[in-house]
Design a protein around this nucleic acid. Structure first.
Length: 666
DNA sequence: CGAGAGATAAACACCC
DNA sequence: TGGGTGTTTATCTCTC
């Protein structure tokens, strides 16, 4: 029986709200775990500034960065032409707007929406996310303020409370981390051309921030940073009120919008949205600039085509990046990148929350986060079920005792596809999407191991994985159970349920063969059957797929883009499969959700993107071997596209921090 | 709308 | 007798 956890709000898809039975990941204890928290190079620095001041300053810095980021995002991804200074609403059909994009799977998106709508939707999502981020930062900042005050008070009254200093330090670190996160985000975006920050501005200084903590440096940095955003500046100078900021920036952008350049006469209305850059951050904001144009080249992810001038660029944009499946797909990928980063951000903030809670600093109130933003709220219906972040933002534990750590920062689990169903359900998505379970597992091994998050794989694929991971490819039921519990924190509870499911799957699927052994019965996998299990079908738009294969040839994703993806810890994309363009042709007959086979293939042919760390795959212990001969033939191709298409399901996210994909699964 | 697939629940049989 | 295993069936939900 699933316990419906009430109180957690989740954005339920507008349409299929039928009680998605979600197995609420009820926070049951466990907080620990969180992987290595590499403290941001914290500085020991409080030079002449009092800790409090420093903290305050850092807060501002962080907010500044966040704001910058938000603005840039807004500029690049959402329609700047916001309505008169209100919430940056998005011009998307209400029907669409009502939907929570994050809960829509790629297929749904494609099916439900026409390309123009889809793009609009994507933009909308970006806008929403931005809002959420803004909101989030605002709250965060308010909280910190509050806490600071509290602390100051406390400090006066009980000077003895010496741990205070430490606490502040910890906070500083946390803040720094957040800053770094923001920077990463920015960098990623920059790389992808979504943000055109002149090198050296904004980001650079910030990066050094952690180390350069002496007051003077900070001041300097501050100047540099602020210099990058002339306008915003003033706003924040006085008190970083993100709230006003929200509207300000919005209205600002609206006002600042350079004369609509008719770039993008696309039929999809996108042009309007992708309006001219505005804002602050994009310094190169020449009146005739374009968010996707900078430094003389097209900043479209994976493009980098040189264009002498804007006119040429516009032309290029219209011809090369017109509304088609490929562009749509790229857009989606971009969306995912952003989402991933957001998730990462959420994680960090969650950690911060935990820290604050731990330090008894006004336990973070859930509301700030769960409270949907206006815009979103309309589309959000809180359906108390699971605890994913509906809005992509962290939902702090409802109760102070709730687990704060690794929960739901997960990889795929949180990905959009999963968002709508955290619980038990629909993980099959990912499977269908050909998510390489082995690779994903390898990459997120630690995560799944510690986070009480349901892995986005079907029982069948997990069982198979478990079996294939063993040298002799056979396991007893009990060993399978053990594998589950060892590999996934999620399966350390509700045992009756999932064990039953495991047994059920073993019996049900022909691909699992029971073999009488000396010591009893063991289960093996009939790969052939397994592959047959599902007819090759690809999720997502077939046309899209085709295009990807032919036209795009994922190899087209240039280095920077890939790198960006990699950076954003986008396993799926990082995964070899994604990169293995050479096998793109094979994708046509995709179809197996299987995973390891995919990986194997890639591994075997050794092709890979030069850019991605080879270690990524080299670290797959499993899989390379097993595929029974027969399965070989058709099992391979799978994923590239699939992945590409579906990565909406993004599996991953391995923490930026946990860099290495875990070398061994077992 | 129907089929297929996956998840979950549960009944039941076997065996140790 | 009880627990672990297996097998089946039923019901939902979701995707196609």
């Amino acid at each position: 029986m699933m316990v419906e956890s009430a109180s957690e709000t989740i954005r339920s898809a507008p349409s299929g709200q039928n009680g998605v039975s979600s197995l609420s990941n009820q926070p049951d204890g466990g907080g620990g775990g969180g992987g290595g928290r590499e403290g941001a190079a914290s500085g020991d620095s409080n030079g002449e500034l009092s800790p409090v001041e420093l903290l305050h300053f850092q807060q501002q810095q962080a907010l500044q960065v966040a704001r910058q980021f938000l603005l840039q995002q807004a500029a690049g991804l959402s329609s700047p032409s916001s309505n008169e200074g209100k919430q940056p609403s998005v011009q998307v059909p209400v029907s669409v707007a009502m939907m929570s994009p994050q809960m829509i799977t790629p297929q749904q998106m494609q099916q439900i929406l026409s390309p123009p709508q889809l793009q609009a939707l994507l933009q909308q999502q970006q806008a929403i996310m931005l809002q959420q981020l803004q909101e989030y930062y605002k709250k965060q900042q308010e909280q910190l303020h509050l806490q600071l005050l509290t602390q100051q008070q406390a400090g006066k009254q009980q000077p003895k409370e010496q741990p205070l200093g430490n606490k502040q330090l910890a906070f500083q670190q946390q803040l720094l981390q957040m800053q770094q996160l923001q920077q990463q985000h920015l960098l990623n975006l920059q790389r992808q051309g979504l943000v055109s920050l002149p090198p050296g501005q904004g980001t650079v200084p910030l990066q050094t921030l952690p180390q350069a903590v002496c007051p003077s440096d900070l001041q300097q940095l501050w100047k540099e940073v602020t210099a990058a955003q002339p306008v915003e500046d003033s706003i924040k100078q006085e008190g970083l009120d993100l709230t006003t900021n929200t509207s300000n920036s919005t209205s600002f952008s609206a006002a600042k919008v350079s004369p609509p350049i008719s770039h993008h006469p696309l039929p999809n209305g996108q042009s309007t949205m992708h309006t001219p850059r505005r804002d602050s951050s994009s310094h190169e904001e020449t009146p005739g600039s374009h968010p996707l144009y900078g430094h003389g080249e097209c900043k479209w992810p994976g493009c980098e085509t040189l264009c002498e001038d804007l006119g040429q660029f516009v032309k290029h944009l219209n011809t090369e990046h017109a509304l088609d499946d490929r562009s749509t797909a790229q857009c989606r990928v971009q969306m995912q990148v952003v989402q991933q980063l957001e998730i990462q951000l959420a994680k960090e903030s969650e950690r911060l929350q935990a820290m604050m809670a731990h330090l008894h600093m006004r336990p973070s109130e859930p509301k700030p986060f769960s409270q949907p933003l206006n815009l979103v709220s309309s589309a959000t219906l809180s359906k108390s079920t699971s605890d994913t972040f509906p809005d992509g933002l962290p939902h702090p534990p409802t109760s102070a005792t709730a687990p704060i750590t690794p929960l739901r920062q997960g990889p795929s689990v949180i990905s959009s596809s999963t968002l709508h169903s955290v619980g038990p359900i629909r993980r099959r998505n990912s499977e269908k999407f050909c998510t390489p379970i082995s690779s994903e597992l390898a990459q997120n091994h630690e995560f799944y191991k510690n986070a009480d998050v349901r892995p986005p794989f079907t029982y069948a694929s997990l069982i198979r994985q478990a079996i294939l991971e063993t040298p002799d490819r056979q396991l007893t039921l009990n060993e399978i159970y053990n594998w589950f519990t060892r590999m996934f924190a999620y399966f350390r509870r509700n045992t009756a349920t999932w064990k039953n499911a495991v047994r059920h799957n073993l019996s049900l699927h022909k691909c699992f063969v029971r073999v009488e052994n000396v010591k009893g019965a063991v289960w093996t996998v009939d790969e052939h059957e397994y592959q047959k299990r599902r007819p090759p079908k690809m999720t997502g738009s077939p046309t899209l797929v085709k295009n990807m294969i032919s036209g795009l040839g994922y190899g087209a994703l240039n280095a920077s883009y890939q790198a960006a993806l990699a950076e954003s810890s986008f396993p799926l994309l990082n995964s070899p499969t994604m990169i293995n363009t050479s096998s793109a042709s094979g994708m046509l007959h995709v179809g197996h959700d299987d995973v390891s086979s995919t990986v194997e293939q890639v591994n075997s042919n050794g092709s890979s993107s030069p850019r991605l760390s080879p270690q990524q795959y080299s670290s797959h212990p499993v899989h390379v071997k097993e595929e029974p001969a027969e399965a070989e033939d058709d099992s391979r191709p799978v994923s590239l596209l699939a992945t590409a298409t579906q990565n909406v399901t993004i599996p991953d996210d391995r923490d930026l921090e946990e860099e290495l994909p875990v070398e061994d699964l077992s």
